[in-house]
Amino acid sequence: MALFHVNFFSEALSMCMSMDVILPEQTTAQIGMKGVASGKPYKTLYLLHGMSDDHTIWQRRTSIERYVSELGIAVVMPTVHLAWYTDMAQGNRYWTFISEELPRKCRSFFANMSDKREDNFAAGLSMGGYGAFKLGLCASESFGAVASLSGGLDVVDTCRKNSDNPIWQQIFGPADQVKGSENDLFAAAERLKASGKPLPKMYQWCGTEDFLYEQNVRMRDHLLSLGYDLTYEESAGDHAWNYWDEKIQTVLRWLPIER
């Protein structure tokens, strides 16, 4: 695999941003690794970080480069700061950045990345799980499969419980205005289903001891009631990297990738 550290300017955010990108590389002599590059346009996984982290975290906490080495896919790991993958009520346009500008930038920098919906995926943990599901539900024309690990999927509930915290107000606006908005994934799932647009394949995991477990159960039940193609799993675990390291490997096996 080849690893790129990319610093670039975002027009949507009017600032310089960073991402790490893993690309397939055909290798035979690399110790302990077997690289695969098919010569076809790369299927691409956008791998999203949580609240306390940045674009480096998946490489620091997991062996993601090793896990994808024989899959022949690209992995894009961007920084999105503490913005919840959202066009903030009082701040910058991070949803526009992640859903529109970033994929376009990636394909301009790396021309072998496929632009087909069925070849583009998103996955993330915690805040990044919310971001991945948001890409699937609000940008389904661009992303064919999405996965959430321990996702913070009910921002209506989160904002209600933190209504006095200015951070949440800066991101989502007043707590009583979040329900039904573009940031409410429950409402987004209903709108997408009613629209007749293609629905994403979805994967969801959460540990039963996680403080976000009840949110995940509510989202599971909501998606299944609407008829989404959801693979849901749960097991013992809390909000920690030893579980996410294991479950990102499950996600990679689940993704619609030719082996």
Rank of each mutant, 00 (worst) to 15 (best):
H5M: 08
N7D: 13
N7C: 09
F8Y: 15
F8R: 00
F9D: 13
F9T: 08
S10R: 08
S14I: 07
M15C: 12
C16N: 12
M19S: 08
L23P: 02
P24Y: 05
E25S: 11
E25C: 13
T27Y: 04
T27R: 10
T28L: 11
A29G: 09
G32N: 01
K34I: 07
K34F: 09
K34S: 06
V36C: 11
A37Y: 11
K40F: 09
P41Q: 09
T44F: 04
Y46N: 03
Y46C: 00
L47I: 00
L48F: 00
H49V: 04
H49C: 00
M51F: 14
M51E: 11
H55S: 12
Q59G: 10
R61P: 01
S63V: 06
S63K: 09
I64Q: 08
E65R: 11
E65A: 11
V68A: 08
S69L: 03
S69N: 13
E70D: 09
L71A: 06
G72N: 04
G72L: 09
G72M: 09
G72K: 10
I73P: 00
I73A: 03
M77Y: 05
T79P: 01
V80P: 00
V80W: 07
H81N: 12
L82P: 02
M88Q: 14
A89S: 10
N92W: 07
Y94K: 07
E101W: 05
E101H: 02
L102F: 03
L102V: 01
P103C: 10
R107P: 02
S108R: 14
S108F: 04
F109C: 05
F109L: 15
A111I: 11
N112S: 10
D115K: 14
K116C: 07
E118L: 08
A122K: 03
A122V: 00
A123T: 00
L125C: 06
G128P: 00
G128E: 05
Y130Q: 06
G131M: 08
G131N: 01
A132K: 05
A139R: 14
S140C: 04
E141W: 05
E141H: 13
A145Y: 12
A145Q: 08
V146A: 09
S148L: 05
D157T: 10
R160E: 14
K161E: 15
N165A: 07
Q169W: 08
Q169T: 11
G173H: 07
P174K: 10
P174R: 10
P174F: 11
A175K: 10
Q177Y: 07
K179A: 15
G180L: 10
E182R: 14
L185M: 08
A187P: 01
A188N: 10
A189K: 03
R191Q: 12
G196C: 04
G196I: 02
L199G: 05
P200H: 11
P200C: 12
P200R: 13
M202N: 03
M202L: 15
Y203Q: 09
Y203I: 07
Q204L: 15
W205T: 01
W205K: 07
W205A: 13
G207Y: 05
L212F: 12
E214R: 12
Q215H: 14
N216W: 02
M219V: 06
M219A: 15
D221R: 13
H222T: 02
S225H: 02
L226R: 02
G227C: 06
Y228D: 04
Y228I: 04
D229V: 06
Y232F: 15
H239L: 06
A240G: 13
N242T: 12
D245V: 03
E246W: 12
K247M: 14
T250W: 05
T250V: 15
R253T: 09
E258P: 01
